[in-house]
Amino acid sequence: MVDSSGDPLLRVENLVRSFGGIKATDNLSLDILPGELHAIIGPNGAGKTTLISQLTGQLMPNSGAVHFAGRDVTRLPSYQRSRLGLARSFQITSLLPDFTAADNVALAAQAHDGHSFRFWGAARKEKHLRDAAQAALARVGLAQRGDVPVSELSHGEQRELELAVALATKPQLLLLDEPMAGLGVTESARMVALLKELRKEVTIVLVEHDMEAVFALADRITVLVYGRVIASGDPDAIRNNEEVKRAYLGEQHAVTSHG
């Protein structure tokens, strides 16, 4: 499934981004291969969210480059990157609170279905948008919740909706920023099962604190500390990496060898 022979889907080269004095991304390079599920872990404040935001265009780097599918996207605004097939979820849920779940997803589908300078026909009556929305909702287990306003969804449902919105843009690369943040045990298990399905279809970058989930899902893991990559490799290599143990895993998570 992972294609390590050809070109990477996403290539990050010497990326730097600082906030005042802090280097949140410090000369970071990284390759994401087509088909892999690549986890990015690291303590809070390591610069994981900042990295994702530079990959999807919410933030611009100070220097360095991002190539996606062979194209230099370093300076592209986020809406153009979305068109190219980059999609993300946000660590802090970012949805359209005044709309229903189905609207949220339908708009994502609409964004990738020609232009939206159509002023007359009712968008909610366009069947293929509705169908696309319904499909994405079903995918994440929200098939029955389409008509519910976002503000009335539970936190867990909102996290699932984040994912459905990203999926509805038909991405080539899905970047998920702590999709399990704040979820309960059963909800987390559902999310893991869902990601296991999704990874068959789309390349995924997963930022996650839940080590059990990370080691169960990831093909490769990259460890960030202070904006720098301190290790990158397959789960076993990371588990046994002395520096990682010292800097991160050792102190806070007892990772069992069966993952």
Partner: peptide, 12 residues
């Protein structure tokens, strides 16, 4: 409702 979200899903 949420400009950042709309940009992220592909709207200028």
């Amino acid at each position: 409702s949420n400009e950042q979200r709309m940009q992220a899903i592909g709207f200028h």
